[in-house]
């Protein structure tokens, strides 16, 4: 299993042709208290950069983009009832959705953990 990161502060864990997607620790710290998460419908096909989910804090709503092309195969229903999980455990149990990759080649353009860390420090 490999973990990738995007400049939009999302992470992907890829197993076979399925990527689990969430937002990073840095993203949750910037958002403040998360109060609502809107997840994509299963079966929806998305292109890289399409709006996939929405994460809301009290005073802001932010879009979560599809990091790569693919089809939504699952959403983390736990987040709908317990949005606070995004603050507590963003890079693990508070994953947003899983997508079936349709263009695995896109992964190569993403960052690894070290690169992402350097990227965040540069902000």
């Amino acid at each position: 299993m490999t973990t990738y990161f995007t400049k939009d502060h999302e992470w992907l864990k890829v197993e076979g042709d399925v990527a689990t997607v969430g937002i990073t620790e840095y993203a949750q710290s910037q958002l403040g208290d998360v109060v609502f998460v809107e997840l994509p419908e299963t079966g929806k096909a998305l292109a890289q950069g399409d709006e996939a989910a929405v994460v809301e804090s009290v005073k802001a709503a932010s879009e979560v983009y599809a990091p790569v092309d693919g089809e939504i195969v699952d959403g983390n229903a736990d987040l709908e009832g317990e949005p606070a999980k995004v603050n507590e455990d963003p890079e693990n149990s508070a994953w947003f959705f899983k997508m079936k990759l349709s263009n695995a080649g896109q992964l190569e353009e993403l960052m690894n953990e070290a690169d992402y860390k350097a990227y965040v420090e540069s902000l």
Partner: peptide, 12 residues
């Protein structure tokens, strides 16, 4: 639930 509203969500 202000994130529905124009002063936060603007064009959405």
């Amino acid at each position: 639930l202000s994130t529905r509203e124009q002063h936060i969500r603007r064009d959405k």
